Computed example of a mutant assay.
Amino acid sequence: MKAVVCKEFGPPSSLVIEDVQSPVPGEKEVLVQVKACSVNFPDTLIVQGLYQFKPELPFTPGSDVAGIVKQVGEKVTHLRPGDEVFGFVMHGGYAEEVVMPGNACFKKPPMMDFPVAASFMMAYGTSYHALKDRGKLQEGETLLVLGASGGVGLAAVELGKLMGAKVIAAASSDEKLNLCKEYGADETINYSKEDLKNRIKELTNGKGVDVVYDPVGGAYAEPALRGTAWEGRYLVVGFAAGDIPKIPLNLALLKGCAIVGVFWGSFAMKTPQKNLENAMELMQWYGAGKLKPHIHKIYPLDESKDALHAMMNREVRGKVVIECS
């Protein structure tokens, strides 16, 4: 089978496409013919050796997978060969076949095509876990989403609005913010030309926001935290800016606020039943037409490097997807 292979940590241009041996599923695993795999920002960090976890070299990147079951392990009872599925792996998705944990693999709704299915689980799973389980977002509260036009950010905007919050979307261009408005943002902040902290204050009449969803980090983290309300919740989702911010902890004391970590991948692996419950709720909303992943562009497997470069260069609004077979 063909697969994208990372033989040494470096830029996406160092990746190669090779014929490799097909994987064999264990007793609790599923072998899937990959039809599509979406690109997520952590993929750009993993291939450079900059992510929290470094896979052993060589490895194939890619986590968000949709495809067709080819083989199931003897202890997997909810799937069978031929089922159309989507789910999550730690890495291995940029390939024609991948082995997935059975408890992280779900039947794909018939009306959901493979590129959309591959764009769904990580973005919406992360954002729903963040807002529901970690941020305890309530109807009527105000949610600020940084990096709001990206994959997880746009999902957070859409879900926040669906959960009854007032949503403030923050991004780096008016074009990106226009997309956020289409997905339900009530207010917007262009932090490339507006002062983030002052604009938060203006939009909340000085109260601040109840929940901050931050997949960006860097220079925007501290002003966003300073813009939280009393007993606000600041959700640490990721560091797309590249810099891990150093936060003055006296801010948490002065505001009585909570700084809360969000790591959906570990949540999904450690508490699969809770993750399944969240996934089922998301599927119901999708089936009712209340969720609509935005696909920016679809690339063939041979152009995986270009997809990663587009993600690194902040050219992506919503999701980019690699078609693998």
Rank of each mutant, 00 (worst) to 15 (best):
Y183R: 06
V24M: 10
G67S: 10
V32Y: 01
E84C: 11
V157L: 04
V262M: 05
S149Y: 14
E175Q: 15
G287C: 10
F86R: 02
V316K: 12
Q138P: 00
H294F: 15
S172E: 03
L203K: 11
P55R: 09
A185R: 11
S149A: 15
M283S: 04
L253E: 00
V236H: 01
L50S: 10
I244F: 11
P61S: 05
F114R: 00
A36Q: 01
T271F: 14
V260S: 09
L79I: 05
N313A: 14
K297C: 06
M121S: 07
Y213Q: 11
T204C: 09
L301C: 14
D64Q: 04
G256T: 00
P115R: 02
N205Q: 15
D302F: 07
P223D: 08
E141I: 10
M90T: 12
G287D: 11
M280L: 15
V237R: 04
A118R: 01
Y128I: 09
G289M: 11
G67D: 07
A95P: 08
K35E: 15
S304M: 14
D43M: 08
V167M: 01
G265I: 05
L308I: 04
K166L: 07
L45T: 06
S13K: 13
G184N: 10
G287R: 13
A155N: 13
P300N: 13
K319H: 13
Q71A: 13
Q273L: 11
M269E: 09
V85H: 03
R226T: 03
L154Y: 10
D186G: 11
G184I: 13
K292N: 15
A171V: 09
G232S: 02
K181G: 06
K207R: 15
N178P: 00
E139F: 06
C180I: 07
G147F: 10
D306N: 14
E141F: 05
G238I: 09
K201D: 14
L196E: 07
H91L: 02
W264L: 11
V76E: 03
K255T: 00
F239W: 13
A169K: 03
P248K: 03
P23R: 13
D83K: 01
A307Q: 08
G93S: 08
L137Q: 02
L146A: 12
C324G: 13
P61T: 06
S192D: 07
T271C: 02
G208H: 00
G67F: 05
P245V: 14
G151E: 05
P11D: 12
G232N: 02
Y286C: 04
G208Q: 00
L235S: 04
L225G: 00
V211N: 03
I295S: 07
G150C: 12
V85Y: 01
D113K: 04
N190C: 10
Y299L: 04
F106E: 00
V321H: 09
F41L: 06
P23T: 13
G256C: 06
G151A: 15
D243A: 14
G82C: 08
I298Q: 11
K54D: 02
T126S: 12
D64F: 07
A170N: 06
P245Q: 05
E29N: 09
C324V: 10
A3V: 06
G227C: 12
D19P: 01
A95D: 07
K132H: 14
E175P: 03
G10I: 14
C180P: 07
K166H: 13
V24E: 14
V72A: 09
V99G: 03
V5M: 15
A3C: 09
